[in-house]
Amino acid sequence: MNESKRILEVKELQTTFFTDSGQIPAVDRISFYLSDSEIVGIVGESGCGKSVTSLSVMGLVPSPPGKITGGEILYNGRDLTRLTDKEMRRIRGNDIAMIFQEPMTSLNPLFTIGNQMIEAIAIHQSEMSKKQSEEKAVQMLKLVGLPRASALMKDYPHQLSGGMRQRVMIAMALVCDPKVLIADEPTTALDVTIQAQILQLMKKLNTDLGTAILLITHDLGVVAEICERVIVMYAGQIIEEAPTSVLFKDPQHPYTQGLIQSVPDMRLKKERLYSIPGNVPKPGTILTGCRFAPRCKFAFDRCISENPELYVTADVHQTRCFLYEERKVKMDGNNTFVDS
């Protein structure tokens, strides 16, 4: 693998929600990185902590009740968890941008597209004149493939379809040339054809602009489409990580195997889609063993009493499962990545 710079590196991140029913470690000591211009996917069932991970990076965890309770988030080597409000505002939108699941509600209904686009520019590039910002905004809307971009500036969000709004969201996120784009289920609310178009657009922008993308999804099909590397999350933890092709060829964790089986395959025309039996553990349940053990057909005694570590099973592959303990290549002891 060629060595490229790690633009974003999350180390042992822990984000906890302090609720009336107790402390919920929604994100439990996860570590991952994102290299320059790379597209990495984070997959996992709903409720496993994907959104909380991305909001933690943005410094936008709803607080109260949520709080980052441990770890580091290094952007270009700077720990974002230690920044002041003001310093963090300069990062948001400018260095790291984010788009969300619901294009229908993510734009302010009472301001025009132009107003919201120009606002994004004005926050970080105050030296630009009104006219320059307008041109930049129109140019960006064109870049994301929106027709009649200048007329669109005067439109309100309700005049646009869901797919168009998500394009506007992408244009708005990228208008200040961020190095990292976090996309939290950007296509989940869209229908299949639009979904494919948006994914292709993101792939294209990644190639053209060099923006690194952290793509969050519950759908391995989406990952297969554009991600170079995949991180699988379960109940707040990373349970497997590998390059996309490796993961699909050799899924190791029983949870990942189940996820892959449940991806709809057009060629097989199965009667019913496979789904992993059981449910994600209820938030706040204290689990001593492997978090997936209650749903795992391979589970044995040790799985119930002890939580496996993330074993590096091949040069670029890691799995949190005792079945792979013997296959581990090397491990640095505290679950963080070993440089390849």
Partner: peptide, 13 residues
Amino acid sequence: SDYIRTARAKGQK
């Protein structure tokens, strides 16, 4: 609302 989160994600005060 979601659009409030969007505005904050832009880095708005």
